[in-house]
């Protein structure tokens, strides 16, 4: 097996809040293989966005890293200073797109200025060269008439176009890893479909690795190769996309897959998940899923289960005896 481009080991991260310490990430292990689209899925508040931001060292002031390492091609990003991250990693190596394209672009600058700013910082060169790169980047994301587009302001573009500009902005510096945090959540289905197709093609053309953060299982089935299922700050299952849908193992993954609305779903066979996501201030001990789990055993309350390989490329963190 190739060594992973991103390898997060035993990451612990908390937020200090008025009510106490919120243990947002609790022993997270995640390996993203080179050249793959790796999905990170889970419900609101499970820590998937925090994970993405932490890779780039984008912290709020109340963040406390409690332990672990984030290896990018073998270098521990957590040991780097903000200056080193900015100089050596952000932009040229690792880039990120966020959920809302409307608020990711600066409304008072033309697209040209925003693209050029990125290039000036990360890929200095002559103006004419930068301009060529800009046009190439806009062409790569299949935006029509890039010359004219460069002269426009964000408000003159639709949501789907803005999100593609965001990708162009990120890809202009040819990063190796792109972290996409719910990039299509704010888009309409037809625009989402166009976006997904553009992203899939691009990924093949330029061989970029994508960590795709989403809560939408249908999108996962369209775009991901490998998927990590996250629950309350830990990865509970790491599995290929096909196996996630065909034979999920962890009780939470099973529930998540069964709650998806498909063509055969109707109001009677709709699956309800009992209970709700726990609060992460004083979370349940042991496996954080145990209060909602129907296979709960005494040991589940004591130690959190670690990821175990059940098949090649398929890992599960659960004490259940029959892991299949």
């Amino acid at each position: 097996m190739m060594s992973p481009i991103l390898d997060i080991n035993d990451l612990y991260l908390s937020f200090s809040t008025e009510e106490g310490e919120l243990e947002a990430i609790n022993g997270l292990n995640l390996e993203v293989e080179q050249g793959k689209i790796h999905g990170l899925i889970g419900e609101t508040g499970c820590g998937k966005s925090v994970t993405g931001r932490t890779v780039l060292g984008l912290f709020d002031s109340n963040t406390m890293i409690k332990g672990g390492e984030i290896l990018y091609n073998g270098d521990d990003l957590l040991s780097k200073t903000q200056h080193e991250l900015q100089r050596d990693y952000r932009g040229n190596e690792i880039a990120m797109i966020f959920q809302d394209p409307g608020s990711s672009l600066n409304p008072v600058f033309k697209i040209e200025d925003q693209l050029d700013e990125v290039l000036r910082i990360y890929q200095p060169g002559k103006k004419a060269e930068r301009r060529k790169k800009m046009i190439a980047a806009l062409n790569a994301v299949k935006l029509p008439d890039p010359e004219r587009l460069l002269k426009k302001y964000p408000h003159q573009l639709s949501g789907g176009m803005k999100q593609r500009v965001m990708i162009a902005l990120n890809l202009a510096c040819q990063p190796s890893l792109l972290i996409a945090d719910e990039p299509t959540t704010a888009l309409d289905v037809s625009i989402q479909a166009q976006f997904i197709n553009v992203l899939k093609e691009l990924q093949k053309e330029i061989d970029i690795t994508i960590l795709y953060i989403t809560h939408d299982m249908a999108v996962v089935s369209e775009i991901c190769d490998q998927v990590s299922v996250m629950y309350a700050g830990r990865i509970v299952e790491d599995v290929s996309m096909e196996d996630l849908f065909n034979k999920p193992v962890h009780p939470y993954s099973k529930l998540l897959v069964s709650s998806v609305l498909g063509p055969e779903t109707n109001i009677d066979n709709l699956v309800e998940i009992s209970g709700s996501v726990p609060r992460l201030i004083n979370p349940p001990p042991g496996c954080r899923f145990h209060p909602r789990c129907e296979h709960m055993k005494p040991e589940c309350k004591e130690e959190p289960p670690v990821l175990k390989e059940v098949a090649p490329g398929h890992q599960v963190a659960c004490f259940k005896e029959d892991l299949s």
Partner: peptide, 24 residues
């Protein structure tokens, strides 16, 4: 037709094929 075929189906074997082009 275009709208419905743009909806991603949660089935690994089925991928988006004929998506609606252009924008509103």
């Amino acid at each position: 037709r275009g709208l419905f075929s743009s909806v991603p189906e949660p089935t690994p074997a089925r991928k988006l094929d004929s998506v609606l082009m252009g924008e509103v």
